[in-house]
Amino acid sequence: MEISRHWRLQQQRYGLLGEKCNHCGEKLFPPRDVCPECTQDSQELYRFSGKGEVYSYSKVFDPPAGYEGTAPYTMALVKLEEGPLVTAQLTDVDNDIVEIGMLVEMVTRKLREDGNRGMLVYGYKFRPRLK
């Protein structure tokens, strides 16, 4: 049912592939058809570095269907070096030592598992930056 929907977003989800606005230079992630800053509609692809820092976070104890397996997990708003915020889970980290400002980097991980259909969705998560 949802396979095509997730397939379409593979590039962006595996490689943090966003856009740069040809008019105002704004860097956009996730990609859009219309730049929210200048409302023009011409962008070129832009690959984000995957480096950022934790802007805010929450340890989630009450997960939605499809995410029960990994709960509790830490959701975060990550501020990318290039500017945008992204919503993502943190991984490879002790949930109890996360703090605002923690330096993180993108990795590709399994996002959700649909028990009934056996479908797996992969995408970005963030882990503490390795020195």
């Binding site: 996730p30 805010s56 009450d62 997990y73 959701m75 708003l77 992204v86």
Partner: peptide, 21 residues
Amino acid sequence: SDWELVQGVTAPAMAALIMRR
């Protein structure tokens, strides 16, 4: 749905991200 939900957010988690900050 494409950029928040897929990551496993819930309504309380969204509020929590705002509250923490």
